[in-house]
């Protein structure tokens, strides 16, 4: 049982984790802004920028939203969403493909 009956000790452990993640997020924010001042070519810039953003988003989802230790039903629902989200993100490809 992840959050139902947590002891005070366990909660304190969690709190420590939150601070670590907080530090990591701040560092990554500095990094992502820093990268933008390098004025990389667009392809590398997008790749790097989105990689850092995904890392940050992953940290938030995993630790703050507790997705690292969640119930099966939530995972299965989110997998479905991820697949459909992927299709949604293919729309640009479909849209622009027609012109070629």
């Amino acid at each position: 049982m992840s959050h139902g009956e947590m002891t005070v000790e366990e909660v304190k452990k969690h709190v420590k984790k939150y601070y670590v993640v907080f530090g990591a997020l701040l560092c990554l924010t500095v990094i992502t802004v820093g990268i933008s001042y390098l004025h990389l070519p667009i392809f590398q810039a997008v790749l790097l920028g989105m990689a850092v953003a995904s890392l940050k988003g992953g940290l938030v989802a995993a630790y703050f939203m507790h997705l690292i230790d969640e119930k099966k039903i939530i995972y299965s629902m989110l997998w479905l969403t991820v697949v459909l989200f992927a299709f949604c993100m293919l729309i640009p490809l479909f849209t622009l493909h027609g012109y070629k």
């Binding site: 992502t32 667009i42 997008v46 920028g49 953003a53 989802a61 703050f64 939203m65």
Partner: peptide, 18 residues
């Protein structure tokens, strides 16, 4: 609230930095 934060994490580089 974390989700709102998460969206911003992607919006920020996409609009401001790239």
């Amino acid at each position: 609230w974390h989700f709102v934060d998460l969206v911003w994490i992607f919006l920020f580089p996409a609009l401001y930095l790239l």
